[in-house]
Nucleic acid binder design. Sequence first.
DNA 1: ACTATTTTTTAGACATGACTAAATATTTTA
DNA 2: TAAAATATTTAGTCATGTCTAAAAAATAGT
Lengths: 224, 224
Amino acid sequence: MENLSHSEENYLKEIFHLSAQSNDRVSTNHLADRLNAKASSITDMLRKLADKELVSYIKYKGCRLTDEGERIAVQIIRKHRLWETFLVKKLSFGWEEVHEVAEQLEHIDSEKLIDSLDHFLDYPKFDPHGDPIPNKDGQIEYRSSKLKLIDVGIKSRVEIVRVNEDSLSLLKFLEQQELTLGTVIEIMEKFPFDDSVRIKVNGERNINLSKKVIENISVKLLDE
Amino acid sequence: MENLSHSEENYLKEIFHLSAQSNDRVSTNHLADRLNAKASSITDMLRKLADKELVSYIKYKGCRLTDEGERIAVQIIRKHRLWETFLVKKLSFGWEEVHEVAEQLEHIDSEKLIDSLDHFLDYPKFDPHGDPIPNKDGQIEYRSSKLKLIDVGIKSRVEIVRVNEDSLSLLKFLEQQELTLGTVIEIMEKFPFDDSVRIKVNGERNINLSKKVIENISVKLLDE
DNA sequence: ACTATTTTTTAGACATGACTAAATATTTTA
DNA sequence: TAAAATATTTAGTCATGTCTAAAAAATAGT
């Protein structure tokens, strides 16, 4: 309902993401880190968002979205993911190129635009990184299991269903290694000293992946 | 090259449009009127744009775009018109609905995005209102003749090729009267006392159009 | 050519969203 | 549990883009 600045929208979105991870109030420093801002700036903005009743903010205790704040955050995420899907599906962007542009597009204010885009794309359920796209009513169909590649046991056969979009260089790496969504992987060996693994890709070639890589890939188990 | 604010971009775009009309320096008040701002705000911004060498500004004498300023203005207009085309052609927007959204989309900063969009739309030459779309190099293919409906003689047969997009209510009116681009019109009668005309549409029905309407429609003559 | 009118600029203010440096809470650790 | 370390807030500043009111310049009218 309200008319928010880009900055305010970015705060809401980031609080939503951090809340999803920690299931707790989001701390000032944590936000400062993610938003590349100083803690003092975060405090200022949280006050403002609290005035608008979009977050509950308790001094020294961090913040949490109100229902209205969450509703808005989800709509921004919906826009972000629909635009990413558009860029990849219709404009042939690579999955590592979409995030930056979608960060701009997500702030375009037009309900008709985003609903038309949703229709044009045939109501996609997941974006190019495998993240679920909230529907018009803000409902998000999360994946039933959230298995990460790092937690998969040896000899398991899995399919890549999601990649963390935050790191540009990770996405470039995966693109280059042809580890895209849908790729089938078998865990050949685990190296506990650095938490890296050796995997077989599509039953063909073996490669090693570092801890940093496998903790950012989600998979689903394939039954033999 | 430079990174401009939305506001700065809007100034450049508006100066370009006003220059095209008057072929002269653009006055502070004229800009204030078009940008819905006070003259003092215009002065401030023109100083800033002059510092960046995007306009030449002479105190009390108005402004004019530099080559670099014009280059940027044209790129913004390119983006605006490509987005309008996308909205109408791909997302089924009405031509009266696109302007407001395109005003936002034109500020998205990604050369790859706009060039991909251009390709996706198959390099359109004109936007939904009949205005020419600048190409990647900033070249604009203006129509050879710029005949306005108000200047057309009696009994002439003409085709609507462009409508001024500035007035929402005019666009709605034309939509409702089915006076879209490509519609063929014959001037039946001119009424000098109020500069209105009676026209025949598609050889079928007669309607009257006020001066306000016909001075905002451009046409091309059809030879019998 | 002088006055009146209009246009434009100047001066000073405000809101937004960021910052730095200092002060104050909270948490950790010995 | 008290000092040390860390996290957070407060106070004061800055740039951006806008505004109002007053001053100055340009233009028009007689």
